[in-house]
Design a protein around this nucleic acid. Structure first.
Lengths: 367, 367
DNA sequence: AGACTCCCCGGAAACGTTTACAGCTATCGG
DNA sequence: CCGATAGCTGTAAACGTTTCCGGGGAGTCT
């Protein structure tokens, strides 16, 4: 009658009230037992029994409302299909899961407004923190990052003074590794298939390529540079455009998807890889090992960056007063068949036959 | 002093109380205005103004507690790196996002206990529904599915009588398409590289392969069948084992990752594809188009299945009383370079390799 | 003018949990 | 033997929102 609270929701699902009533104790005691803090042996027994009998499962939302956290970590990346993000996601997931939390994945499609909206929406507190790997950064975006109501860690370049936890790599140096390797193996007409220049990685890689080429005293022929999206199809058509107007002996590609596209364009154009044209990709994803010939690729440590970003985030969630930190993961080059220095003898083949390639060695050599 | 409720949390973040106090109205009125239901023009103005001034953002958790839903949909798949799941995920994400919800992705790693635990954890109501694509199914699992406290849709085969929404394909028929195509192009010693037989898709594909081969009157040589995981590396080593003991003229692979591994093993063993050995993969992922030679592959409509599963789930969330439904997506075969060559029917005289006719065509022919 | 309708508003309950607080009992030390 | 202390328990507040309900005012129709 004069009960203050419905003990059994219309739903029929048991709540802590149900358990408490059945065990003949107060909800406070029930809650304490269920959380493993306090309670006499007798109470513990009764509550455990009652909970088991009614099949009680705590409501995560009510708990979150009370505890002010959800146990969810968000990850926002551009393209969930890009294997580099898959690797990063796996690494993040491992750390996040080991802290008992779950990962919520957002695909932004590279649309900046999308991402900013996401950041603003963080204010509603549905996640405890967020890892974001922005491909484009605007001022609006940056302020949204800085005064985000929940901890945010950025994977990728960011303005030097931004007060945001940040894990980055040096993709300029990454491109330099590729160029150095190609120059060292005798290549001189080195082409570059990049992603959009208005993206952070695109701009960095462009700068890195120009600097590296210049460092080797090579005058850069602008015809050797082509731009498309960071995708397979775009990489292929960009390479086709490049091949239509000039004749490179090597190609540096801004990521592995582009490199695979380039590989197809080259083979379709009758170029042999690596005999006629060496190809080096970037990100060193599983895809690089899966191609034939296997792709040389510059690792930007995406898994490692993901792992560190997740750790930074967890630390910041634990202690919001930490100063903003920045970590850097060095790039490294793995040389495989697509740019092998020593060329195996090609099979005797008709000029128009499909290109013969080197045997897929199971692994490459890390430089 | 005698205030019943703190109007301003220690946090400093504005709540609906803050807004109401600032606007000089009750929290009920504030809430109504913020939700766009009711309110006089004057009240609306005041509340909107107050909300803007304090930068109010509703707390998603409190809202969820009240409304009994979170706006989250979970997706549980075995391997987030498998492109087939990426495609499925993309399709699901599109539907889910269009309903204003968000997708929560779980990677189960194929461990069944993991998945069952996930299902049980659903009871804590953190998500409004779940799409799961189980690779193994046990009784325990099945009961967890059936009496799940929140709506669940299964992508994949499931016992005929299970009262769970279910979107499936006919992978036996899918394998049959591959075998028919290979037989029609003159292949006779057709090998099969499958995934584990204790998985649902593995078992179905095995049965489909045996039935299809038998239907063509070919006595199956058990040496032509090999089993590994549904992964690239496993596909490669399984194919190596197969090649070490016998000599197929075609390979059907249980998914595209296996097919890529097979491709590598074949090329490493000096076999030409498709001249010596034709290869057909399964799932028809982007990977199939990215390989060289491009892979023929049987599409099992993963994107379509994902899309339909998401729609079923949304419908069930809207109306829990719907009867369990089952939908089926037909498989289809796309022929590309990896199985394009027709083998001369008589095996008696074919010492010389046929001329190479394949080059990476941009697309294949759908059968 | 009175009754009826419609709309708006505020109070308060509700969602399901955790936890601060206070009261109680039992034990123990002095 | 008495006071302090420790451990357990129950009451109630709190997390932030939505929503039911009743009251009141304005407008309309008879």
């Amino acid at each position: 009658m004069g009960r203050k609270r419905l003990q059994e929701p219309a739903d029929g699902r048991p709540t802590v009230h149900t358990v408490a009533a059945r065990a003949g104790v107060s909800i406070a005691s029930a809650s304490r037992v269920l959380n493993g803090v306090g309670g006499s042996p007798e109470t513990i027994r009764k509550v455990r029994e009652a909970a088991a009998e009614v099949g009680y499962v705590p409501n995560a939302i009510a708990r979150s409302l009370q505890s002010q956290r959800t146990g969810l970590i968000a990850l926002a990346v551009e393209d969930i299909g890009n294997p580099v993000y898959v690797e990063m996601m796996r690494a993040i997931e491992a750390v996040v899961a080991s802290s008992g939390r779950q990962l919520l994945v957002h695909a932004t499609g590279g649309r900046i407004d999308n991402e900013t909206a996401l950041l603003r929406r963080l204010a509603n507190r549905y996640v405890d923190g967020m890892i974001v790997s922005p491909i484009r950064v605007t001022d609006d975006h940056l302020t949204a990052l800085v005064d985000s109501p929940v901890p945010v860690v950025v994977v990728g370049q960011l303005g030097a003074d931004a007060a945001v936890d940040n894990v980055r790599t040096d993709s300029r140096q990454g491109v330099a590794l590729a160029v150095d390797h190609l120059v060292a193996t005798g290549r001189r007409r080195i082409g570059f298939v990049n992603g959009p220049l208005d993206t952070v990685p695109g701009a960095a890689r462009d700068a890195g390529f120009r600097a590296a080429v210049a460092r080797h005293g090579i005058a850069l022929d602008e015809e050797l540079v082509e731009v498309g999206d960071f995708q397979y199809a775009a990489g292929r058509s960009a390479t086709e455009r490049l091949l239509a107007r000039t004749d490179p002996d090597a190609l540096v590609c801004a990521n592995d998807l582009i490199a695979v596209g380039a590989l197809h364009a080259l083979l379709a154009a009758g170029r042999r890889v690596p005999q006629d044209v060496a190809v080096v990709g970037m990100d060193d994803t599983e895809l690089a090992r899966m191609m034939f010939p296997q792709l040389s690729s510059v690792s930007l440590g995406s898994a490692e960056r993901g792992r560190r970003a997740a750790e930074l985030l967890l630390q910041r969630i634990a202690d919001a007063t930490l100063p903003p930190r920045r970590e850097q993961v060095p790039p490294s080059l793995t040389v495989r068949a697509s740019s092998a220095a020593t060329l195996p003898a090609p099979r005797s083949a008709a000029p128009d036959s499909p290109p013969t390639t080197t045997h897929p060695s199971s692994e490459g050599v890390t430089a």
